[in-house]
């Protein structure tokens, strides 16, 4: 393995991790406030769909990202209403939303363009090389010659960590996930806070979907998220419910996926389907190892009922 291959792997890792990152950070918000983020998959797909369609129709990538966040948030608000307000089961509702978005996006794709799914070709967002850093030999160009959205994904961890640990609102959000009764007694409305967290998380997951469609793939195809939401969910757990941990988790999964892609081109005598299983096998293995010591937010999955 030479230096170029390593650089190539690094580039692919970053590329694949970016959508996961948005989704994982979005899911983290939702889980920290006490709602399982099973619906990330659907929120990502909704973002991918609205992002791709609007970028295609309006020919504007920035608008695509903005509407993708909106699409994710809209899907999130559906989930938020059902789980937080109506106290529906979080797992079942999340899965239902995933299936709903899968069907709805495929249906609308055809419906909007007269019965036949159009071939959507999208121009990826322009890159924005960082001065100095991008000039580092070999790794510079691969890591620091990215679009703004990629930098945003990785920088997002800073405000998110600050928000969760240093602000009043972040403390309240965590309290709602740990013990909503305590937050309620402190004068907050846990249901409202959970809804806000889910919707905000949905917006981030939607952005993740848009990154996937607009940048990684450059198109929209049916069910294109293909389990990435669940990988993001695993990354949250592997990262033990911290933003920095979630980044690490996403990078691990991104790296394994990159390895899988490259392994195919290296011509290893292994079925490509087996290779495609690798990220999921890793997710299972890591979760089995981590779950014993990891601490979920105590009130996750438990609806808040005002007595």
């Amino acid at each position: 393995m030479d230096l170029m291959m390593i650089a190539d792997l690094a580039a692919a890792t970053v590329r694949i991790s970016t959508p996961l990152l948005f989704a994982a950070l979005g899911g983290l918000l939702s889980e920290k406030a006490g709602t399982f983020a099973v619906g990330i998959e659907g929120m990502m797909l909704a973002g991918a769909f609205t992002g791709a369609i609007s970028a295609f129709v309006f020919g504007n990538v920035a608008l695509g990202f903005a509407l993708a966040a909106l699409g994710g948030a809209a899907t999130g608000s559906l989930l938020a209403f059902a789980t937080a307000r109506c106290r529906a089961d979080q797992m079942v509702t999340g899965l239902a939303v995933n299936v709903l978005v899968l069907g709805l996006s495929s249906f609308l794709l055809r419906g909007l363009f007269g019965g036949r799914a159009p071939v959507i070709r999208l121009t990826p967002p322009g890159t924005w090389p960082l001065p100095w850093l991008s000039e580092i030999p070999v790794m510079g160009p691969v890591l620091f010659r990215q679009s703004a959205i990629v930098y945003l994904a990785f920088l997002l961890v800073v405000p998110l960590t600050l928000f969760l640990t240093k602000t009043r609102a972040g403390l309240t959000l965590r309290a709602v996930g740990e013990n909503p009764e305590a937050a309620f007694a402190a004068g907050y409305d846990p249901i409202r806070i959970r809804m806000i967290a889910i919707v905000a998380g949905g917006a981030l997951a939607g952005l993740g979907g848009a990154v996937l469609a607009l940048q990684e793939v450059g198109s929209f195809t049916d069910g294109m998220t293909n389990g990435r939401g669940f990988i993001a969910l695993a990354a949250i757990m592997v990262g033990r419910w911290t933003p920095v941990g979630a980044i690490a988790g996403c990078l691990i999964f991104g790296f394994v996926s990159a390895l899988e892609l490259r392994a195919q081109s290296w011509g290893l005598p292994v079925s490509s389907y087996v290779m495609q299983m690798m990220p999921y096998c890793l997710a299972l293995a890591l979760l089995a190892g981590v779950s014993r010591s990891a601490r979920l937010p105590a009130a996750i999955g438990v609806p808040f009922i005002r007595h």
């Binding site: 403390l171 740990e178 937050a183 007694a185 004068g187 907050y188």
Partner: peptide, 22 residues
């Protein structure tokens, strides 16, 4: 109505009066 996974200080800060977001 205390959050077990948080410190005494964090529990006291939860919902404490004041206007600063920090």
């Amino acid at each position: 109505t205390l959050v077990e996974a948080m410190s005494v200080t964090e529990n006291v800060m939860l919902g404490a009066p004041g206007s600063s977001p920090w």
